[in-house]
Structure formats: structure tokens, C-alpha cells
């Protein structure tokens, strides 16, 4: 599933703050949180782990087939919005 830019303005149902954490914590925690959520909800993740945003998150979300959207909120800081589709 490629990135979806129209997620950018969607209000998230859940947020996850993993600032300062290194891999595999951000992906693992996001995965756990997504498992607990209902289909159709949107999760917002705050992270400052560039390598996770470039590699781990896209590959994990591709595998799960969830649309997502990455916004760079500052140098080395990112917000990822993920929609749980199923």
C-alpha cells in the first residue's frame, strides 16, 4: 500500500508517542496498538527515529496493507498517520 496524502488532515482516534525510542520499539509498539484498535480508526505516531520512518514503518505497513502518511514536523521529527483498514 503506497502512502496516502489525504490522511494528513484526518483527526486521529489514537496517538502513540515514541519520541527518543530506537528500533524495534517504535514499530513493535505501533503494531501492538494497531492490533487493539478497531477497523477504520486512525493511529498517529510521533517518532524521531529517521531510520524507522524510512525503512521499518513502510515495510511493516506494506505487509499489513494499511495506508499511511508521513509528515516531517521538524529536523529529525516525524508524524506518521496510519489507518487501520481491516
Amino acid at each position: 500500500m503506497p502512502e496516502e496524502k489525504n490522511l494528513e488532515n484526518v483527526k486521529p482516534d489514537e496517538t502513540l508517542d515514541v519520541m527518543g525510542e530506537t528500533c524495534p520499539i517504535p514499530e513493535a509498539m505501533a503494531h501492538k496498538k494497531l492490533n487493539k484498535m478497531k477497523a477504520g480508526q486512525v493511529l498517529e505516531v510521533y517518532t524521531d527515529h529517521a531510520a524507522a520512518v524510512e525503512n521499518s514503518f513502510p515495510s511493516m505497513l506494506n505487509k499489513l496493507n494499511y495506508p499511511y502518511c508521513v509528515t516531517k514536523t521538524g529536523p529529525g521529527e516525524f508524524t506518521i498517520k496510519i489507518k487501520k483498514t481491516s
Binding site: N55, S56, S59
Partner: peptide, 20 residues
């Protein structure tokens, strides 16, 4: 290049991604 062995291994195990 984000050259890290742990990142590479985690990506393979968790998402079968081989980029790193």
C-alpha cells in the same frame, strides 16, 4: 546509509524487508 545490523535483522524478521 543507516547501516545497522540490528535494523537489518529486525526488518527482515518483522516485515521481510531487505533494504538495509
Amino acid at each position: 546509509g543507516r547501516m545497522c545490523f540490528v535494523l537489518a535483522t529486525n526488518n527482515i524478521i518483522m516485515a521481510k524487508d531487505t533494504k538495509i
